[in-house]
Design a protein around this nucleic acid. Structure first.
Length: 225
DNA sequence: GTCCAGGGCCTAC
DNA sequence: GTAGGCCATGGA
């Protein structure tokens, strides 16, 4: 089994540090996390730009905006009716319960995760993305790419649960904010570039990474022999 | 024209 | 508790 940190080192060498999820504010990151569900980041950027242009990228504005206006603004991010309704409701709830994003983010990681999961429209991955990238608390984000890659490299079962895989990473990777951020980004980068929906492909660079890892391990074993 | 993206909810079994 | 359907735009 390749250790997660070893896979990460290979990816880091391949892609370089990714400085993922550039958002001007933690609130922008939170909004982006919801809008990017099953949607390419480029389309999310368009929606965020519209919100900024209308000066509505704030908890107060999104909590009170007319729903049709919001739908129009975030339309490029897809599922726009659903996302508009959920985004507005989530912002209203946060505003009523906490008054500000900072107050919400002052909860500890697990309490924050639990609170986020109680909002309709925020599931495991979105909650963890917000905890990690918006609230800056180290929690490991699992996504479809991570699952596929771990299946490919470490023969993890395809139907492994979110919680189990998260537990595996958090048990095997030193809890470090920047490491957790970049490691998830690296997995996504690899998945985006090469893995797509092919569960086990030939001539895929992910396999090169596997091969690279295997040869490195063989070399190490040879040295110790 | 077809496929799919930095998911999650609801319903049926 | 889980498989299947649904939500929808825009780029490759």
């Amino acid at each position: 089994m390749a250790k997660p940190i070893e896979i990460y080192r290979l990816l880091l060498k391949r892609f370089g540090f990714l400085n993922w999820w550039p958002g001007e504010t933690s609130f922008e990151v939170l909004v982006g996390a919801i809008l990017t569900q099953q949607t390419s980041w480029k389309n999310v950027e368009k929606a965020i730009a519209s919100l900024k242009k209308e000066q509505c990228l704030s908890l107060e504005c999104l909590a009170s905006i007319n729903i049709k206006s919001l739908e129009k603004l975030i339309r490029p991010s897809g599922y726009y009716k659903q996302k508009a309704r959920r985004l507005k409701d989530i912002c209203s709830s946060i505003k009523d319960e906490y008054g500000s994003i900072d107050k919400l983010f002052s909860l500890d990681a697990q309490a924050l995760r639990k609170k986020l999961l109680s909002y309709k429209g925020i599931g495991n991955e979105t909650a963890d993305s917000i905890v990690l990238y918006a609230a800056n608390k180290p929690i490991f984000v699992i996504d479809a790419y991570t699952k596929r890659i771990m299946r490919r490299i470490n023969k993890m079962p395809i139907d492994i649960s979110y919680d189990s895989l998260q537990e595996y990473f958090e048990k095997n990777v030193k809890r470090d904010l920047e490491l957790y951020k970049d490691m998830h980004a690296q997995f996504v980068e690899l998945g985006k570039s090469y893995c797509k929906t092919i569960p086990l492909c030939d001539n895929c660079p992910a396999n090169n990474i596997c091969a690279y890892y295997e040869s490195a391990r063989s070399a190490k074993q040879a040295r110790h022999a």
